[in-house]
Amino acid sequence: MTAARTKLLVLSSTYPRWSDDSEPSFVHELSKRLADDMDVTVLCPSAKGAQRLERMDGVKVVRYRYAPNALETLVHNGGIVGNLASKPWKVALLPTFLLSQLFTALWLCLRSRPDVMHAHWLVPQGLVAAFLSLCLRRKVPFVVTCHGTDLWSFRGRIWEPIKRWAAREASVMAVVSKVMEDELANQVGQINNVVIAPMGVDLEKRFRPAFNGRPCTYQIITVGRLVESKGVEYLIGAMPELVHRFPAATAVIVGDGPDRIRLERLAVQLGVTDHCEFLGKISNKELPDLYRSSSVFVAPFLQEGLGLVCIEALGCGCPVVASDIPALADIIEHSGKVHLVPARSRKAIISAVTEVFSNFDEELNGARRSHSRLSAKFGWNVVSEGYAAILRGAMTRN
């Protein structure tokens, strides 16, 4: 007799709206791998152009409405935190966003009776999962994964007691890096159900070096939402001197967000518009070729949970220059080939990029050699097996 498949309900505020979407895809990448052995349903917010109900790569996707179609803009194109910062009026969408997610999740629980839930981000999805555990007669164990913004952006007297309650209701609290484990303890106190479990990168098929080719000379790339915490202004600020040293130098800026106009104006003010190419959002399929065609990836982060884009770049054999922030320590440990610079320092970026350009063959070979070590820690095969074990362990804790 075949054993029944585990029913998993995933709660997430970030999810691809369609195939090859430019929105972050790590929740879907994990979910589709878990779907090999589990019946996975993902609950996520609706968006213009996205189907309300569909099956994507073996994952059942349910999207809940929280506003008229034209106003469902709280989540995408910058994330909740970025959108609220750039357009404060969107705070009016939060009540219906939370309530619609809660009631739809409750309906799904009553209808399909999941064995376990996985909430991505402590706020708001972890909070919703904790409320569900109170509402349901049959308590459903749940795992919460913190990705970064849920810890650093929702602070103060109101949020920290809420986060403390949700974290202690969870069967397992997962954080994607060691620094986040420390931050979680600072906010909610010591709890005994915390594990470090990063998200993954498709290093097996997509993000691989092109050993038989060379990238474009002096092409710099950065990838991410254009929000203050990504620090892109410091890369643009470094461009006048880099162009002076390397006249062919170009910064390719991939991503969109509330800071884009400000950053484009900065490039004009500094006289480097011809050397700063704003590509906007591109599909996830296009990223590997961009990494492979670039000479260096610059991640001038001010704050970050883990830095998956650095792993993607290294996986494609692109040398990396990144801010010396604690979250990147986990990547350094398993790659050994990242130039760390102080955050907010244009001079340090100039110096590090100059070093990469000046010793390019050595830098390129070092980045390419890091692929196998990164795969052993951050490859999706390893990461998904770890999360499958965490979810099944959560079921035995209750």
Rank of each mutant, 00 (worst) to 15 (best):
Y15P: 04
R245C: 06
N212I: 02
W380K: 00
E228W: 14
T273R: 12
G79S: 08
D256F: 01
T149Y: 08
L290R: 15
Y387L: 06
K60Y: 05
L9N: 06
L134E: 15
K48E: 15
W380R: 01
R225D: 02
A85S: 13
A299L: 12
R17L: 14
A119L: 00
R155Q: 14
E72A: 01
D259M: 05
D324R: 12
A70Q: 07
P24Q: 08
R397Q: 14
R392Y: 02
E228C: 00
W159M: 14
E333Y: 02
I191M: 05
V42I: 03
E169C: 13
A352Q: 02
C109E: 01
V320A: 05
R392E: 11
R111T: 15
L263D: 07
V272L: 00
V188A: 04
P288L: 07
T6S: 07
L184I: 03
R397M: 12
H28D: 08
M56L: 10
G255R: 08
G305E: 03
L242F: 05
T14K: 01
K347A: 15
H244E: 15
L242E: 14
F378Y: 13
Q303M: 12
P288Y: 10
D289L: 07
D39P: 02
E385C: 09
L102V: 05
G307W: 10
A238Y: 06
W107I: 03
G237W: 05
R262G: 03
W159P: 01
V188D: 10
S384V: 02
G231D: 11
L302P: 09
E333A: 15
E333P: 00
P88G: 00
E23C: 01
M180Y: 11
A329N: 12
L132W: 06
E286M: 06
R65Y: 06
I80K: 02
A313V: 03
R113S: 09
W165N: 00
A248D: 15
R164N: 04
V321K: 06
V232N: 10
R225H: 06
T6M: 12
A329S: 14
P198T: 06
E304P: 11
Q187C: 03
V140Q: 01
K90H: 06
L391T: 05
W89T: 02
V128W: 10
P24H: 12
S335L: 08
V188W: 07
A388D: 11
K60D: 11
E181D: 11
S293A: 14
F246K: 01
G386N: 14
A130G: 09
C44R: 04
P247S: 03
P258N: 00
L98Y: 14
K48S: 14
V338K: 03
E304C: 11
M56W: 14
Q269I: 02
G156S: 06
F211W: 10
G386V: 08
T14D: 13
